[in-house]
Each structure stands twice: as C-alpha cells, then as structure tokens.
Amino acid sequence: MADVKKEHELIVTVSPHVRDEETTSRIMWTVNLSLLPALFMGFYFFGLKALFITALCIISSVLSEYFFQKAVKKKLTINDGSAFLTGLLLGMNLPSSLWSFNPFTIHVPIIGSVIAVVITKQFFGGLGYNIFNPALIGRAFLLISFPKAMTIWTEPSAAFFALDAKTTATPLGILKEDGLAKLIEVFGDKLNLYAELFNGHRAGSIGETSVLALLIGAGFLLYKRYITWHIPFSFLGTVAMLAWIFGGKNPETGKMLLFAGDPLIHLLSGGLMLGAFFMATDYVTCPTVRKGQIVFGIGCGALTMLIRIKGGYPEGVMFAILLMNCFAPLIDRAMKSDVFGAVKEKKK
C-alpha cells in the first residue's frame, strides 16, 4: 500500500476527535460587538469625547496586557478580545467629562485600565482566574481615587464637537437628593421621563444611558446563548421588587412609604441594564451553575437597592456586582449541579 501513511505520520490525540466551532475569542469578540449599539448611543448623546474616552480605555487595556505578558514572559493573549472587552466596558462605565485638559483628567481612564487589566486580571493569573470583574474594579478604584472627576456628568446633546457642555446630575442623583417630584419636573412629565430614560437621553456614564441600545445587544447575546436569562432576570426582578416595596417616599415627611415605589425608574436608570446584562454575566466572575446564578442575581439586585436607597452613593450596581463576585466561588461550592440519578427515581 503506497498511500497508507507510515506509522509515525499518524496523528494521535485524546478523544473527543470532533469539537464545536465555538472559541473563547469568538465569544469575547461577539460580546464586544453586542456593546456597539450602546456605545453608538453614547457617542450620539455625549459626542466625540465619549469615543475618545472609550478608545483610550481600550488602547490602554490592550497595551497593559501586552506589556505585562511580555514582562513576565507569558503567552500573549491580546487577540482573544478579553482585554479589549475590559477596556470597552470600563470606557462605557466612565463619564465623558473625563476627556478634559483643564482640569487635566485624561490620565484617569488610563490608570483605571491598568488597574483593571494588570492588578485585577493578570496578577490573579490572567483570563479565567480573576475573582473580580476587571472593568468594575478599575471603575471602583477611580471612583474612590478621583471622586470629583468621576462624578461630573455632562448634559446629553447631539452636539458632537462641544467640548464644554453643561454639567448636570444623573436621574438617580436627583432622585436621591431632591426626590421623585423634582425628577419628574426636570423631565416634564412621568411619561417623558420613562421615554428619555429608555432612549438614553439623560446624564450618566457613556454606555449606560440607552436602555434601548443595551437591550438590543443583550437580546443578541441571549439569542446566541452567550448569556442566559438567569443572572440578568433575577437581578432585574429583585431590583424591581425591592424598588416597589422600599423605593417609595412620603412626599410630605420624606420618610419611607412601603409598597409605593416606582420600579420602572429604578430599572431604567443608572448602570443597571449595562451591569445586569454585560457585567454581572461575566463568565469568570459569576457562578457557573444555573441555580447558583439565580442566587447571584438576587444578591446583586438586593445589594444594588440597599445602596441606592440606604447608601451614600446614588448608584449601587457596581459595588453590588463586585461584592457578589466574592461570593461566586462559594455559591458554586454550596450549590453544585444535580448529579444524574442522585435524586429519587422518577416514575414516567
């Protein structure tokens, strides 16, 4: 047999011998893609500054990963899209006002990126080993280190080149400081408030404002089964429930009024949609078993509302997810998957 391969030419590998086409980098790049509608809306409302900030975060994240991996002689993984994603998410979580030369705050996104990629991800062993969501640690670090610069919110407008736009407060900020009546007054009426929140025409971080755009991206990820309903829906459901129960205030006394809150305002504002669909669902830092993910989502929702209603910050999504990240390994340990046959024999 002339064309029978010689023995040493046969390739020997372990089973299985067929593999699915899905790859880690394809997942990462698809998630990047799914964030583009929200990024575009950030650009639409906050102008080129929004793009500059996001680009700055992406470039510094990818370069941080590159130089760190070069320095410690690890395999370069910048093409897998995960450092890019960290940069993109961090950028979308920052106020566009950071693109400013007076006062000079351009270094802020760069510092955040380095913290996110080098300290949060690479120091813990790189992709797959980090405990916390890198982009969120980056943002948390910046919020604590640069509290003023991180809370200057620009009024949304479609003026792309305006460099000194008017500053204002976020809807959640207004809700916390001045109450619901004031918030409705700012937006004209309640219906308009909902509509503007849904479209994203409000002050906030670059990529968090447009619920519509975020839902388009999230729908795409759900359809592709890159994320499942477990975390986002339990997260959002808990927020809605707690907002309704504890979110109401007596307009006269300012005291809490049970079962009188407006869940929709809480659902549509802050970083909730971005956090619930794109950050809490980060594979590495959430539980892997579905039932544990529901617990994780409920925890995120409860902590978010605790901070929003009782805490010092108007928004709590970031800290809620980070706190729940700590519990992810524990949840996985406590709520292992159900082994086949371990439950009682079922009758058909």
Binding site: T24, I27, G126, L127, G128, C286, T288
Partner: peptide, 9 residues
C-alpha cells in the same frame, strides 16, 4: 488549549 473561562457550557 486555553484556561477555563467558567462559561458553564
């Protein structure tokens, strides 16, 4: 092959 990204698939 790469590290486990804990996707849960």
């Amino acid at each position: 092959y790469g590290p486990c990204i804990r996707c849960g698939r």
